[in-house]
Design a protein around this nucleic acid. Sequence first.
RNA 1: GGAGGAUUAGCGAAGUGGCCAAACGCAUCAGACUGUAAAUCUGCUCCCAUCCGGGUUCGGUGGUUCGAAUCCAUCAUCCUCCA
Length: 318
Amino acid sequence: MPTISSLSRPRLLVLVGPTAVGKTKLSLSVAKHYECEIISGDSMQVYRKMDIGTAKLSVQEREGIPHHMMDIHDPDEAFSVAEFQDRGRTLISEITARNHIPFIVGGTGLYVESLCYGFEFGDNSSDEEFRQQMADYAASHGTEALHERLKEVDSITAERLHHHDQRRVIRALEVFHLSGEPLSSQLARQKRESPYDLCMIGLTMDRQMLYKRIEARIDIMLQEGLIDEVRQLLEQGYSRNLVSMQGLGYKEIAAYLEGEMSLDAAVELLKRDTRRFAKRQLSWFRRMTDLEWVDVTDSEQTDKHFTQICKIIAGKFR
RNA sequence: GGAGGAUUAGCGAAGUGGCCAAACGCAUCAGACUGUAAAUCUGCUCCCAUCCGGGUUCGGUGGUUCGAAUCCAUCAUCCUCCA
């Protein structure tokens, strides 16, 4: 039963799951049934010109359902969780005002969670020069020395980070550098409560089956012209160092196109990396306690899964 | 028929008398994750045990030795060369 506060909070429907489980397909049925507008919860679909490798639905395939947070940046424009959250919040209130249900569908755990819960990124922003300085320091003095420096300003964060995890060590240092406050104390202030009336569904599947689907999907992407897509990006001058080019499929195919490995090797690597990614997604989602799981191993039974999902939604949003 | 080489954990591959349950790589599995997150990072993987620890391994069998994955014999399988 909804409490007073849940009645006053906007509804937010969420569908997560590892890559290639079948989120997209199910999301269309659900969106139609509940008059939803979809917000892509995916860190790579935000980029234009990256369609095949990100398994983006074409406008036609969207069957008239609005899809937000797609194609909002060129591949050389940096994107971040904070921006995702910011835009997401706006979208949610706009969609709610239209009397539609905002529906996040995606596989980027951090992004989805940042929107679902009260993550506060503050105005820490970033400082490229500082990052570079820190990276240089680690290169000359070692990662442990850099970790030591973090220990001095934020021992709590240092405690939980391995000194090899330079990206996080540097960010924690950067947060202190920019705000004068340790990341850990900023985090301690945040409340875990969601600003929304949440209904979160997670799709899962037998691992072997999922891996087969991943491989099959990659083969299809290749047939659909993934290599050309990557080639065009490179020809248009998008560097391999760009964040967008670190995406699965782009990274590996670019390595092939630049002559670093054979196509077979690149494809094999892409499959492996994607399998690993799916595993990581699952381990992220598993700790999300508000999630209701739906096992879609029997991938033929989409009607059954759809019914199951509707039941969960009906239970939450009554 | 003869000569030589090989056989190590899921795979590849070190180890050639004690420091070996066995390096390393891969793959698998598990985990972390608050402005790069499709990124970044950690740990496990012969069996049993939460820990201490215990039990079985290095193609099979039988030896030598206080002690063998490592030495010897023999059998099996594979490869190369000579017939």
